[in-house]
Design a binder for these strands. Sequence first.
DNA 1: ACGAGCTCCTGCTTGC
DNA 2: TGCAAGCAGGAGCTCG
Length: 283
Amino acid sequence: MPELPEVEVVRSGLEPIVTGRRIESVQVLHPRPVRRHLAGPEDFALTLTGRSFERPRRRGKYLWFALADGDAILAHLGMSGQFRLDQPSAELQRNTRITFDLDDGGQLRFVDQRMFGGLSLSPGGAELPDEVAHIALDPFDEHFDLGATADRLRAKRTTVKRALLDQQLVSGIGNIYADESLWLARIHPEQPTATLARGESLAVLEAARTVMAEALAQGGTSFDALYVNVNGQSGYFGRDLNVYGREDLPCPRCGTAIVRQQFMNRSSHFCPSCQRLRKRRSR
DNA sequence: ACGAGCTCCTGCTTGC
DNA sequence: TGCAAGCAGGAGCTCG
């Protein structure tokens, strides 16, 4: 599932492909991925034709293509969105939803099996789309304030994993990196945020940055063909996961069997020995 | 204002 | 063998 490292791999892969390119034509093959463009699929295609790309940008899991006229094409990969570059004559990948023919003869394709993600036009959004403004900075942003975020995390009245997944507290972290970060920081996912010491709050955010930086360096995490870069290749971080998807396998630190627990209709993975739930506030 | 739960979507896997 | 249920989950939305 694309989280910050995977989205950044896609963004950096797109940069040399689209920057400076002009859109010759757009085909919308399924209406759902443009559902956020209220004027409809036909308008989406027509209004983008003839425009030119500048550098693609990112905050958290949001990606946007700045356009030369100051607008932007906002993109979210959701669960399964991919961008691929191909020749127009090449057979379409299964679940291809939108294609952009570029002025250098290439074709940019948005492929998305589950269609949780999508594209929309963001007027005036080249610097920062309005739709992204409410999302917190991610840990890789030069203005990200780790200390202030740690304080806000502790001020919440929830559990630490929920807080890590709250994109309005810190963006870019999804289910995989939340589990990995908590394991690295040795904190139980259900630990109430109000019981965390400041050092623990800092540690879990630092762990998130560390884990995501390592994943980014390896081209992102993949379990299957649902996440690939613009050339269709998978990342290598999957082999380095310590808890996610490793139910009943030994904890790499202590050998205790990893536990999978239902959480918000999804799963949390943790080591019941390294990550103990504390009843009391820590200092 | 904030926290929690629901919903959207497809396709692979699992079980009867 | 065939069918259906289970499962994967980001984020907008609603409700309390």
